[in-house]
């Protein structure tokens, strides 16, 4: 494992900790898209089917379980926790995420490494992850004002993607047969979605001002 991959995993983990912190500390999930969170649950469950078939390392297994567990906990809080669910901005979270699920699944049936149950679900999870942030980004755009923790959550998620791209570049040059074009192309698309957000995040950081997105 190279340093970029590790940095990517850590920023991914930090983003989840930031989100859990926001929900637990403020007892509020305002500004957070339940649809994006539900998509992440599907992404992790579909991708980590290999928990039952392949063992890579303790690190991999633990991280997979953490990602599945934390994403389930977040969705549970937003749907079931009495205080938290009252703060959910339902009217701002109207993205039709079922289309993303359907579209990703159809794409996985067409484009995959092997036509097996596990490989189809792996490709599906890669495609779905690429677009899963969209409901969240649309929601931020609609609300305009972004609170600090929500802004940091999205920032760390974007950083995770950026580090994974550096990781692939590194692997491409250091490993003789590294070719994972499905993951790399989807990863590029996914990271591109964050470009706009990053732009406004850095401007607000530079000016030491609250993050505001244009309507």
């Amino acid at each position: 494992m190279n340093i970029f991959r590790f940095a990517g995993d850590m920023t991914h983990l930090i983003s989840i900790v930031v989100l859990l912190l926001k929900i637990y500390a403020t007892k509020s999930c305002s500004g957070i898209s339940l649809k994006t969170q539900e998509l992440y649950v599907i992404v992790f469950l579909a991708r980590y089917l290999d928990l039952f078939t392949d063992f890579i390392s303790v690190y991999n297994t633990v991280m997979k379980l953490v990602f599945i567990g934390s994403s389930l906990a977040i969705v549970w809080c937003m749907r079931m926790h009495r205080a938290v669910k009252r703060t959910y901005d339902k009217e701002l979270d109207t993205f039709r995420h079922y289309f993303l699920v359907l579209g990703s699944f159809v794409l996985a049936l067409l484009l995959h490494e092997k036509f097996t149950f596990q490989e189809i679900f792996w490709a599906f999870s890669i495609y779905l992850e690429a677009v899963a942030i969209l409901p969240q980004l649309v929601m931020l755009q609609r609300s305009g004002n972004v609170d600090n923790l929500t802004g940091q959550y999205v920032f760390f998620l974007g950083a995770y993607r950026a580090f994974y791209i550096l990781n692939w570049i590194y692997r491409f040059f250091t490993e003789p047969h590294f070719s994972r074009w499905i993951a790399c192309l989807s990863g590029l698309v996914q990271t591109a979605f964050y470009a706009d957000f990053f732009y406004y995040y850095f401007i607000s950081w530079k000016n030491n001002a609250k993050l505001q997105l244009p309507a």
């Binding site: 991959r5 995993d9 991914h12 290999d50 392949d54 890579i56 991999n60 991280m63 997979k64 990602f67 490494e113 792996w122 994974y164 990781n167 490993e175 047969h177 590294f178 070719s179 994972r180 993951a183």
Partner: peptide
């Protein structure tokens, strides 16, 4: 070639 197919990323 076999080991290249291991999906070792998260």
């Amino acid at each position: 070639k076999e080991e290249d197919d291991v999906k070792d990323e998260l």
